[in-house]
Design a protein around this nucleic acid. Structure first.
Lengths: 335, 335
DNA sequence: GTATCGTTTGCATACGAATGCAATTATCTG
DNA sequence: CAGATAATTGCATTCGTATGCAAACGATAC
């Protein structure tokens, strides 16, 4: 027994005014006299009336909705980012439409839904936009901001941390501390962050006259990272340092080294991660890592999106935020 | 330069048919001849037309949208649950409107927005509904399913794991293994899960002729849990077992015991958690804990919500799913 | 060719709220 | 108190799509 919902007409009838008057009571700039407002609000209260956002969106041609596309919600870094972003938009009166995509990032179906949904902005977390859709967003002047993923298309804004220089720092630092057999544990092939971290790392090694000792992929997943570690340490001589593309995998490396291979960190093997998630600071790991400025990334991304939605015209921006090395105890010190 | 969006009229004009014909091309049960469909689709393609979901929702009186309210996204358990739930609804063609609430759970503002948004169902993750809003949902026949939170109101469906018996098992098990000074580390006062776990735990102790040695709150947060641990171990005799209301805090307990107090787990202190999040299985912790059937909880909750949205009438259900003890190595064994 | 039936099409209207315009009322001014 | 001005109010229309209804069309059978 689905009862017909209460509309502004019902309220108008009960209050003895026109539907327009009711409408004006619920919009900020509506001109209405204090006493009619009172009567109307009373009637609304009595009937349990609430303005229908959908109808409002239609006539206003504005949904006040932002679509968020995210993969890897199981990665605490992105869960946190989503939480922050959500707060930013909620506080500005926007609603969030959430879309999850699988790790391999097939955004096609989802993008189509987003465009139909009349979202006024799109935030992409660790998910990539295909060029045709990026183009379509530009055509419809729907601002897009990508966090931690880049795409070779100037029409969308991108906020990333400086993955290349982060990787470069790791390479230099490890070399500087006297390591000679550095291994890299990558995430997913589809991830541009991983690619940049790797590139920087390799370039740094080359600059020191070194080469990468071994390379594996852990797909950003704990269990896969454990397996990859076993492969990296399948034969001697072992690597004397492992750079993992994120903290989550770095922890997997440490756990595997200790529990299965009887190796100590950092005495036998040094480990460096990326992200500075909370786990990195736990006493058991004291993981040296690179901090991504989560807070700032979200702020910048949200502000960008909000600004572009307000202005209605697109002026895409590419921002790269510095990462900062957090020195803890997972790297063997020279001498 | 925000260009006017393409409407079905534009397509109709280009294709030389009526607007109705266009509409029928995009709805499954529309009667249309193959050749007009072809012409229309071609025109739509050419113009980049996409049906406007908002207008469709309005006329269909159905938004195909589910609102998800979640707190504690930083807790991996809920991040995972959200990920699963999202998949379930997306695959049924529903859109997810995401609302984050602060831990203390002020859902009032958010609930008001949800009701205006014309969501057809509400999923609450670790967030509580106040009775007036619960009543309003019932009045509007909007199905609500709460996961892991209970409220004393029969109008909404609730899916929880058996927190009471989980707590009870912990109490019996610890007693059975010869512990005598058990401490409880609670989460938030506002959380019914914590309350049930505590109740079961205390009841089990009483049944063994024991009492709870000490009690603290860690607010489900790592740092707060560390502090609470310090308080629990501020003076001797130390507790010989700690039951933490979730794994996240249990790990904090272990870290603090080892790093700051030089205590071993389980030789000096036994620790039990709740959830069986991935961390619990890491070799460093080998945490004995109670597994919540995440997968099943989500499936049950999503199916319930979907069924109730389809049927349009409410028949709320309270489901309690069994938790299963996962015995690892964080409890000292008798003898 | 005509009568009949089924399919396809367009017309007109509806969904619920916002707003320009004109009409009305309230307020102010001299 | 008349006249002018400002503040409210209601009417009618609009947003973009779906659908009942009747008209037009095509196919089929005799």
């Amino acid at each position: 027994m689905k009862q017909r919902p209460v509309t502004s007409r019902d309220v108008a009838r009960l209050a003895g005014v026109s539907q327009s008057a009711v409408s004006r009571c619920f919009s900020p700039q509506g001109s209405i006299s204090p006493k009619t407002r009172e009567v109307v609000l009373a009637a609304a209260q009595q009937l349990g009336y609430r303005p229908n956002t959908i109808a409002r969106s239609l006539i206003m041609r504005s949904s006040r909705t932002v679509a968020v596309v995210v993969s890897q919600l199981d990665n605490p870094f992105y869960a946190l980012t989503l939480a922050r972003a959500s707060r930013a938009f909620q506080s500005e009166g926007y609603h969030l439409l959430l879309f999850l995509v699988s790790d391999d990032g097939d955004t096609t179906g989802v993008m189509s839904e987003i465009l139909q949904s009349q979202a006024e902005g799109i935030l992409m977390l660790a998910a990539t936009l295909t060029t045709p859709f990026a183009q379509e967003c530009v055509d419809r002047s729907i601002p897009v901001v990508m966090i931690n993923r880049t795409v070779d298309f100037m029409g969308v804004s991108q906020v990333s941390s400086d993955n290349y220089h982060g990787g470069y720092w790791v390479g230099s630092y490890l070399a500087g501390q006297g390591h000679r057999r550095m291994a890299f544990l990558n995430g997913l092939a589809s991830s541009s962050t991983g690619a940049y971290r790797r590139r920087g790392f390799l370039d740094a090694l080359v600059a020191q006259g070194l080469a990468c000792w071994a390379e594996e992929s852990g797909e950003y997943r704990f269990d896969k990272a454990c397996e990859a570690t076993r492969r990296l340490f399948a034969q001697k001589p072992y690597p004397d340092a492992v750079f993992a593309a994120n903290d989550h995998m770095a922890v997997a490396v440490i756990e595997t080294l200790r529990a299965e291979l009887g190796l100590r960190v950092p005495e036998d093997v040094s480990v460096i991660g990326f992200d500075d998630t909370p786990v990195a600071a736990w006493p058991s790991y004291r993981l040296t890592t690179l901090r991504q400025p989560v807070e700032e990334m979200v702020t910048v991304a949200a502000d960008l999106l909000l600004a572009q939605m307000r202005e209605g015209h697109l002026s895409p921006v590419q921002r790269t935020l510095p990462v900062v090395p957090i020195l803890r105890g997972s790297v063997r010190q020279r001498g």
